[in-house]
Design a protein around this nucleic acid. Structure first.
Lengths: 191, 191
DNA sequence: CGTCTATGTAAACAGTTGCTGACTTACGCA
DNA sequence: TGCGTAAGTCAGCAACTGTTTACATAGACG
C-alpha cells in the first residue's frame, strides 16, 4: 500500500526538504546530537539521499551554513538606523528564523564549514558596526568592530538562552519587551 | 613494566582528576562530542572508573555543573559595584575559568542536569541584577531581571565566540580592552 | 510499447560509544 | 605475615552512526 500523499519524484524538492529539516535539527540540537537518520525522517526521505545530494553529513551542514549566509546577505531596503538595527536584531532572536542565529554558534569540527561560519559572523559584525560609521579602513576601526561583536554576542547569547528555555523572564519575553533594552544597548555601544 | 610515575591508589584524587578533565572537555567540545574514553585518557585513568564514581556519563556531566554552581556561589568579599561586576564578568569571559561560562551553555538532554544548569543561570542573573537594586520582590523586578539576563547573554555569547576563535578583534582582545565596553554596557542596562 | 536513466529503497558494513561483569592488584589492618 | 576489601584493569557486548552498495521503479523519450 502506498501512502496517500506519495510525492512525485523530484530531486530539487527533496534536496530542499532535506536542507530545511537539517537546519532545524542542527540549530536546535547541534551537529553531533543530530543524526542523519533524524534529518531524513523529518524530511520524509531515505537516509541514503543525504549522501547522494550533499556527499556527507558535513556537506549538508556546510550547505545549511551557506544558505544562512545567502539570507543574511540580502541588501537593506532602508537606510539602517539604530532603531531599525535593534528591531531587526530582536526579530532574529525571537522570530522563527532564530535557526539562523543558532546555526552560527554550531560547529561540526570540519574546517571548511567552520570557515564559512566565521565569514558569516564577520560580515554580520561589519554590517552592524557600519551603522556606527565603521568602514573597512576607518581610523580606530577595531574599537567599533569590537563593540559590534559584543552586540552580536549579546544577540547570539540571548537566542541560545531562549532556545534552551526556562530562564525567565528572558525566555518568554516578546519582541516588544526586548526592543527597549536592546536599543539601549545599541545606543551605548554603537553611537 | 610500570610507569615511572604510577600514582598511588586514591579514590578521591581520581575522582577529582576525572572531574577536572571532564569540565575542560565538556566546556570546549560539548556533551555529545566528548567521549568517556577521551575524558579517562585526559585524566590518566581507566574508563570504567567513570561509571564507578559518577554512575554514567550523564552523572559526570551533572557533577561538572554542580561544581560550577559551588564555585559561583562563593560570597562576595567586597560590596558589588558596577565596576567590580564588569571586571568580574570580563575575567570570567577571558580567564581560564571560561570553562564555567561555556558549561552553562552545554546541554546533555538529561532532565536533572538541565535543571541544575537552569538554577545556576537564574542565580547568576539574580546576582547580577542585585547590583542594580533588584531584590526577590522589588516592584518592576522583572524589568531589571530581564536586563541582567541580557548582560549574562552578552557574557556567555562573548565567551562562546572567543572559544570557537577567529572573530577578530574579539577573540584576541585582552581583559583590559574588554572592560571598557562591558562597563559601558552595564552602566546602560543596570543603572 | 520498450528501454534507459534519474530517483528512491533496503540492507548491511565498519567504526564508535556507553556501559558492564569478571578479573587482578595494591594497601590497611589484625 | 596473611587476608579482606577498596581501587583499578581488561575485554567485550549491544546499540548506534555515517556511509556504501546492490537493487527497484517511476517517468521521460524514441
Amino acid at each position: 500500500m502506498m501512502t496517500s500523499t506519495a510525492r512525485p519524484r523530484d530531486a530539487a524538492q527533496t534536496r530542499t526538504e532535506l536542507l530545511r529539516a537539517a537546519r532545524v535539527r542542527f540549530a536546535r540540537d547541534g551537529y553531533r546530537s543530530t543524526t542523519v537518520r533524524d534529518i531524513a525522517a523529518d524530511a520524509g526521505v531515505n537516509v541514503a539521499l543525504i549522501s547522494r545530494y550533499f556527499d556527507s553529513k558535513d556537506g549538508l551542514f556546510e550547505a545549511c551554513l551557506a544558505s544562512v549566509g545567502e539570507e543574511l546577505k540580502r541588501p537593506e531596503t532602508e537606510a539602517p538606523t539604530l532603531e531599525r538595527v535593534a528591531r531587526s536584531l530582536v526579530r532574529q532572536v525571537t522570530g522563527f528564523s532564530s535557526d539562523q542565529m543558532l546555526l552560527l554558534l554550531r560547529t561540526s569540527g570540519d574546517e571548511r564549514a567552520d570557515g564559512i561560519r566565521r565569514r558569516i559572523l564577520r560580515t554580520f559584525a561589519e554590517k552592524t558596526a557600519s551603522v556606527a560609521g565603521w568602514t573597512p579602513d576607518s581610523p580606530d576601526g577595531d574599537r567599533l568592530l569590537l563593540r559590534a561583536e559584543i552586540v552580536l554576542s549579546a544577540a547570539l547569547g540571548m537566542t541560545q538562552l531562549r532556545s534552551t528555555g526556562g530562564l525567565e523572564p528572558l525566555s518568554s519575553a516578546t519582541e516588544e519587551e526586548l526592543v527597549e533594552p536592546v536599543l539601549a544597548l545599541l545606543r551605548e555601544l554603537l553611537r
